[in-house]
């Protein structure tokens, strides 16, 4: 058993300041994950040079990989830091903020773009009201299984971080939002505006921007079949294109 664990953390004080690396050496404690080590640094914020520094800032909430907040690059690979177990990681452990989003501070980034994409693709059921209108449609178990898997997306950003097409210079919607269009286009009432969602996917930043690298599906911590979703939406978009041609 090692006595200590070394962390090399890429830090950035403000949105516009430059980044720098800082090393922390903390006592090794069995069954640690990255978050519990960041907490240890908080409780004793001293770097490897023995200087007292501001504790590292990161974002987290549920700590059980269902909220998506604590996503970061761990040894260069995007993952939730709560489920990154120290014993399984190569040392020293390198932590960096995700690279596809503006850094707020240290390991915290601003993922507003992903939530804006959910607005663009109208990822919701347009309800008549919240009063008692009886039960929803009956649905098969296989429908539920497909929909549930897609609905587990926590907007964490792993898929777009891994995507070679998604960058700050373009407005690609990304795999998460495209997969949500599949979810809502298969819902018995949300599909009433399926065509509007397809229109969005046909615009700039839509499905045509996907380069088919298939990194997204590898990176997804929830094993959501993102490439299947993209293929399915590609089919729906082509279908609509054909319909448009025949209508014209």
């Amino acid at each position: 058993m090692p006595d200590t664990v070394t962390f090399k953390i890429k830090r950035q004080d403000t949105e516009t300041s430059g980044s720098y690396w800082e090393t922390f050496i903390i006592p090794y404690i069995p069954n640690s994950n990255v978050i519990s080590c960041l907490m240890d640094i908080q409780a004793n914020p001293v770097n490897a040079k023995g200087e007292e520094v501001a504790p590292v800032v990161w974002e987290s909430n549920c700590l059980e990989e269902v909220c998506g907040a604590c996503t970061m690059l761990i040894n260069g690979k995007v993952h939730q830091s709560c489920s990154a177990l120290v014993d399984k990681l190569e040392k020293p452990i390198r932590l960096e903020p995700m690279s596809k989003f503006p850094v707020v501070r240290d390991l915290t980034v601003d993922r507003s773009r992903m939530f804006d994409a959910l607005k663009k693709v109208q990822a919701w059921v347009a309800a008549d009201g919240y009063h008692d209108l009886g039960p929803g449609d009956r649905l098969s178990q296989s429908h539920q299984e497909t929909a549930y898997k897609l609905s587990e997306c926590m907007t964490c950003g792993c898929c777009v971080e891994a995507c070679p097409q998604y960058s700050s210079d373009n407005n690609f919607l990304g795999a998460a939002a495209i997969s949500q269009t599949r979810l809502f286009n298969m819902h018995p009432t949300a599909k009433n505006i399926a065509d509007e969602r397809l229109d969005t996917l046909m615009q700039e930043g839509g499905i045509a921007d996907c380069g088919n690298a298939q990194n997204c599906v590898e990176a997804c911590p929830k094993s959501i079949p993102l490439t299947e979703s993209i293929a399915e939406m590609g089919r729906q978009v082509s279908g609509k294109l054909w319909r448009n041609i025949f209508k014209a």
């Binding site: 919701w124 059921v125 008692d132 009886g134 039960p135 929803g136 649905l139 098969s140």
Partner: peptide, 22 residues
Amino acid sequence: PYIINLMDRLGVTFNRTPEGNL
């Protein structure tokens, strides 16, 4: 019961029985 039906209508992917009920 109404709240569960409402959440079903709003798209919650509740598990189903073989007949398709919640």
